[in-house]
Amino acid sequence: MAEQRVQWFKFASPPNFYDLAGRLAPWFGGLAAILFVVGLYIGFILAPPDYQQGNSYRIMFIHVPTAWMSMFLYVLMAVYAAIGLIWRVKTAEVMAKAIAPTGAMFAFLCLWSGALWGKPTWGTYWVWDARLTSQLILLFLYLGYMALHAAIEDRQRAANASAILALAGVVNVPIIYFSVVWWNTLHQGASITVTSAPTMETVMFVALLVMTFACWMYAIAVVLWRARLELLERERRAAWVLERTGEKA
């Protein structure tokens, strides 16, 4: 079996991963909760209103972290997909699949908060701004990945096929991003010039950083949780699953 080859990577064997993820996930979840409270406190109580945008700029504290997370998670998903495809590491395949829904959720939240930030700032919910547009395409890429995974019944084949798609996507993401930025600068006359982010004070920057870490921890907790369930389903006939369900049931 392929597992033998990756023994050195102890974390990668499904039972070890299952146990470790089960132990770690609650900690990441708790950390996320604390960081969200701290970040929101700094962002809403300590940080003063922006002199130009008033209070609406506070949307930034959710908009920017979700944007970063959705992009980062896509790359991470492709890395796990590649590991799964090349070295046949089952846990990596499971991780890639488990990341996708959370990444798509962050992409959606980024678009949603971007639209709600746009209304008071630009006077309209949607602007074909380069960043919003490429975020929209990123959401489509996530949806395509999940749709392909769902369409193939055989789990191994689904993991391999969607890994190819994730890799094709990750090669394309920078090209898409630059072409969209370019497209946007060329059509500047037609679109509204995007106001730059408010001049950052240190408090705002700290709030942004804390919120980003909070999203990070949340993503890790949720992804580990989902990966565990995925692994149980995939390996339901394996001895280690039977051992562990015996205790729980």
């Binding site: 008033g54 209070n55 609406s56 949307i59 959710i62 979700t66 939240l109 908060s113 008071p120």
Partner: peptide
């Protein structure tokens, strides 16, 4: 009230 921007600010965080 968020200085009149309440629906936008709380709309973003609420949906998140």
């Amino acid at each position: 009230a968020m200085g009149g921007h309440a629906p936008y600010v709380w709309g973003s965080y609420g949906v998140a």
